[in-house]
């Protein structure tokens, strides 16, 4: 049973991708003209109808400054990590030591989970191997991990990325959830979670 409200919401959810596709069409042509806008809109309509996607739950919140901070930090991370991986590739006496880590995110939103996955994945040195959507867990393959300290540092980096994304455009609930776990007591919170996990399994 779909109510009128739900149907309206389903249509509303298709509008952001439609706008994005129209803008993309114009980007590809490299110029703005009314004909481009019209054709882009028609093509966008066809694509959104023919390749129907599950509606994405947008959070409805955007903090411009934190979003900019996230993107700037992302580019800096990409640059730094690219140089690290390149150096690893050419350095003499290569010792490969990797890890597959299970990182439990605090968000419950698919959108933030995806963004965190892509953002950590785009930074060289980590690849998403698997995702557990139900409990927001990322399984990452990480290059060049030599000790437990490296692993802890990497975990904290992923969680910080998540925090920056949530502060940028996460939902209010997620922001509240982040506030409960501050960076400095995150370590103890995780340790508690880990011992609890061990006890139950």
């Amino acid at each position: 049973m779909t109510t009128k409200h739900e149907r309206l919401e389903a249509v509303g959810n298709q509008i952001p991708p439609l706008i994005a596709l129209t803008v993309l069409w114009m980007l590809l042509w490299g110029e703005f003209s009314w004909l481009n806008l019209l054709v882009g809109f028609v093509v966008g309509m066809i694509v959104t109808v023919a390749f129907y996607l599950v509606p994405v739950q947008l959070s409805g919140r955007l903090h411009p400054l934190h979003t900019v901070i996230f993107f700037v930090r992302l580019i800096v991370d990409i640059a730094r990590a690219s140089i690290e991986v390149s150096w690893l590739a050419v350095k003499p006496r290569l010792v490969t030591s990797n890890a597959i880590l299970k990182i439990r995110l605090r968000t419950r939103s698919d959108l933030i989970l995806t963004w965190t996955g892509v953002a950590t994945s785009i930074v060289p040195g980590s690849i998403v191997v698997d995702i557990d959507r139900e409990s927001s867990i990322l399984f990452l393959h990480v290059l060049n991990m030599h000790s437990a300290r490296d692993i802890e540092r990497f975990r904290r980096r992923v969680l910080d990325t998540e925090r920056r994304i949530v502060r940028g455009f996460g939902s209010y609930e997620d922001v509240e959830r982040m506030r409960g776990v501050l960076p400095e007591n995150r370590l103890t919170a995780r340790r508690a979670a880990r011992t609890k996990g061990k006890g139950s399994s």
């Binding site: 990409i78 991986v85 490969t96 930074v123 690849i127 393959h141």
Partner: peptide, 17 residues
């Protein structure tokens, strides 16, 4: 790099930068 997963890092990442 010795195995598939580590090679993936080399193949996909520095290239973006």
């Amino acid at each position: 790099f010795p195995d598939v997963l580590s090679r993936l890092h080399a193949a996909t990442k520095p290239q973006i930068f």
